[in-house]
C-alpha cells in the first residue's frame, strides 16, 4: 500500500501544477482565487497521504483539519476583500 500512497501523492502534486497555472495566468483576481482554493483542497488529501507514508496519521490529521479551516477562512476573507471592482478593472 505504501507505494500506492506514494504515487498518488506524487500524482496529486502533478495536478497542483495545473491549478497553479490558473493561479498564475488567470485573467482576473477571482480566477487566481479559484486556483488557490483548488490547490488547498488537494493539499487536504495530500497531507493525510503524507501522514500515512510516515506512519504518523494521528499527528497529520490535526494539521489537515487546521489546514481545511484555514483554507476556507482565507477564501472567505479574500472574497470579501476583492468585492470591489478596483482590483479587477485594469485586468478585464
Amino acid at each position: 500500500m505504501d507505494n500506492i500512497f506514494l504515487y498518488s501523492s506524487l500524482y496529486l502534486s502533478f495536478l497542483m501544477v495545473f491549478s497553479l497555472y490558473r493561479a498564475v495566468i488567470g485573467p482576473t483576481v477571482l480566477d487566481r482565487m479559484i486556483g488557490v482554493n483548488a490547490i488547498g483542497s488537494k493539499t487536504t488529501v495530500m497531507l493525510i497521504l503524507i501522514g500515512l507514508l510516515y506512519h504518523r496519521v494521528d499527528m497529520f490529521v490535526d494539521i489537515c483539519l487546521a489546514y481545511a479551516m484555514l483554507n476556507f477562512i482565507a477564501v472567505l476573507a479574500a472574497s470579501r476583500y476583492f468585492h470591489k471592482r478596483q482590483g479587477l478593472s485594469d485586468e478585464i
Binding site: S79, R80, H83, L88
Partner: peptide, 9 residues
C-alpha cells in the same frame, strides 16, 4: 462567496 464577489465586481 467567490461568486458573490464576482457579481459585486
Amino acid at each position: 462567496a467567490i461568486v458573490d464577489a464576482g457579481v459585486r465586481a
